[in-house]
Amino acid sequence: MKTKILFTFLFFVAGIYYCYGQTDLKIDPKTLAVPEKNGIWVQPAQNTKAQPIWGFADGIRIGIAPLDGPRGLIRIYTPYLGHDEFVVTNFIAFEPIDKAKSIRGLSELEWSELDNVRGKRFWSSDTPEAPSFPDKYYPAHGIVTNENGVETLTVYFFCETFDNGADVYVRIKFTAGKPYEFEITGYVTEESDELSRFILTATMGNKARLRTLYLANGKTKEAGQLWPTYTDSNFTEHNHTSLAEMIKDKNGGVWFIASPDEEDPTQAVYAEDTHTHWKYTGKKATQYWYCPKPGNELEGVVNGRYTYWASKSPIPGGISYENFELTEPFHTGQSYIFGISPFSPEEIISGINLDSVPNKP
């Protein structure tokens, strides 16, 4: 009970930071150099103070602080959905669990030891060797290379050591021909305490009002059916989806897919006190995690919210999924793919069955 109360308090405080724009900014991100276009890619400008944004010129992009938003989170941008610049569709947080004490680290909520501001600092690198925090206004460029005839863009993100002793980093890889997704691979440094899990959680499902999970054999899980009477302003308990329940492709990979249940999310009617950043704009989209090589203990996990984070504002249409993640016992080099696709869940699932998931604009 004490742990649940503590988590609720921490999420509430972090929500206030988000709602009121608490960041470590000293410079307006709009005054930083915009990303450079390099063929199909965008990458941070070099030799100048630059916006830390990487990804597709015509597809999904990611960014980190000092861009707008809370610290300790990867921002996910989807301009192909008709979103304005700096509109975040979802975030990914780092949440490693140490093996000795089973304490879950929270990259967004823990205090930085570098500057005593809430949110662990992330920094970028072109290589897996980046032990110290560089100048946050001069991000890595990212490396474009050719892998088996296919162009890729790779960048590494590092994080301060967590309070539980976890010292982790990730590799992000974008692959030509897959403009709506990226691969994220987790690692630990030699200095890290041993981990039981390294959870990469998509933390803002309420922005898109994700309510339907798509499972094997045409089954679904609806948020409203999982928590039919929940009207509190906190997070629900987690719901777990086993490996056996998830959609599989012919190579043994598994898909954990979520979407809104509204025909047009832009037509929602909001409570008067709903903050502008929660109001969905642009095209409807499907979000998913994909694990190409799942272990037997892999699970899909979600929780829900009835009100928007750190507020009493009810979510239009009722409770929806908030955190959306895959989890399994940790081994270094675990890879997952996260995507936000303009295609419907039915089109994606049909593509999985035909070994031809739609990816073209």
Rank of each mutant, 00 (worst) to 15 (best):
K312R: 15
E347D: 11
I172Q: 06
S112H: 01
G69F: 00
W227Q: 07
T332C: 09
R61E: 03
A130Q: 09
T276A: 15
P265Q: 12
Q22T: 06
L195F: 09
F91V: 03
H83P: 01
G186D: 14
V150H: 03
S341D: 10
G55S: 05
N353F: 13
E36Q: 14
L195Q: 08
G165T: 13
Q46Y: 10
A285V: 12
T212R: 11
A166N: 05
C291M: 12
L32A: 12
S112D: 02
G59I: 08
T8E: 15
E108P: 00
S196N: 03
Y306L: 14
N116C: 05
I337G: 00
R118K: 07
P52K: 05
V144T: 15
Q51D: 00
G177D: 06
P96K: 08
R211M: 04
I199G: 00
F133A: 06
V155L: 10
R75Q: 08
T3G: 04
I64D: 02
E245I: 10
H141Y: 10
W54Y: 02
T175P: 00
P345S: 02
V269K: 15
E113T: 14
F157Q: 04
G295H: 15
M246Y: 07
I5Q: 09
T23L: 01
I257Y: 02
T154A: 05
P358N: 03
N353Q: 14
D126H: 13
T307S: 15
S341Q: 09
F56S: 04
R104T: 10
I184S: 02
S320A: 15
F91K: 01
M204D: 03
L153N: 02
G186K: 10
L195I: 09
P128F: 08
N38L: 13
E297Q: 14
L243Q: 07
D249V: 11
D28T: 07
P260D: 10
W227L: 12
Y290L: 10
Y137M: 12
I60D: 03
E160I: 08
S107K: 02
D126K: 14
Y214I: 05
F256K: 12
W41P: 11
W255G: 08
K219F: 11
Y18F: 11
Y308H: 14
T201C: 02
T229Q: 12
I184Y: 03
P139V: 05
R171W: 10
G224M: 05
G282I: 10
P342K: 06
K207R: 13
G15F: 08
D84R: 06
